[in-house]
Amino acid sequence: MRIAILGFGSVGRGIARAILAKNLDLAVTGLADSRSGIIDPAGIDIAAALARKEGGAPCGSPDVSPADVVAKADYDVLVEVTPTNVDDGEPALGHIRGALRRHKHVVTSNKGPIALAYPELRDLAAANGVFLRYEATVCGAIPLIHAMQEGLAGNTISRLYGVFNGTCNYILTRMAEDSLTYEQALAEARELGYAEADPTYDVEGIDAAIKLVILANAILDMRTTLDDVERTGITLLTPEALRLAEDQDCTIRLIGEVVPEAGVLRVSPRIVSKVHPLVVEGTLNAVTVGTDLAGDLTFIGKGAGSVETASAVIGDLLYIRDRHVQGS
């Protein structure tokens, strides 16, 4: 199966490495980063492109744009793994639309287009007879969307809640462990590369809220936007508050929660018993899905990272490969 990759940052390179390391039967015929692109119907030399990128050079030619790759390359699946833009989802949204209109399947890790335009993109994919898959948009390596769509098919999901942001979970874990202040724990998270220079997106709960919107719209058939999420971040938390929770064998975690029937969409710090399965350490993610037939299920795993997120993308790619007729 031939794929075109848009975005050659952490996730894109993770996919490239996995393709090189494993026999996945995937040929890369198009590749673009923000400054350059390559189109080669015979298959791009991925190892060479990785070496160029890691040497600080563009991955391809400055004359080839991402839009060129979408419109002109020969591929079966567009792998859209550029950074998230939550304001309008662009330029990823336009690229996804372009590929779907060309009857190409799309796999993305980009939260923007899925959170903002899921119903439209789903209909566009259906009208063109192709798949649109987005496992990597929520909780990195955890196959949450697959689990809910396939494994738990037939169940009614009554509640979905958990730790959706590894950066916040790391900060709260460290505040509880060593009585660090929020600022100290954030500085440590930055040093370790777990937090961005501008951490707003994570610590104000925006990232977790976007994931809730994706799950609500794509899995729970709700019609919500980011503005519908009641959202409180972790920036005001104090070490004393964590100690007060600790005194009662509890701790504090940033919890995202969707209760479809009650219309609850909420991201907020919550007091959680330390023995609760959602209390995970460090940058892990954990999500509990409450269902009518299967009962409660809790998924725990890495919510971010190059290879971990690539795992979710590759899962989607192989899902499509096993279900489509090649060379269509």
Partner: peptide, 8 residues
């Protein structure tokens, strides 16, 4: 004020 409610 910030209120932190219990999860359950």
């Amino acid at each position: 004020l910030l209120i932190i409610e219990p999860l359950e």
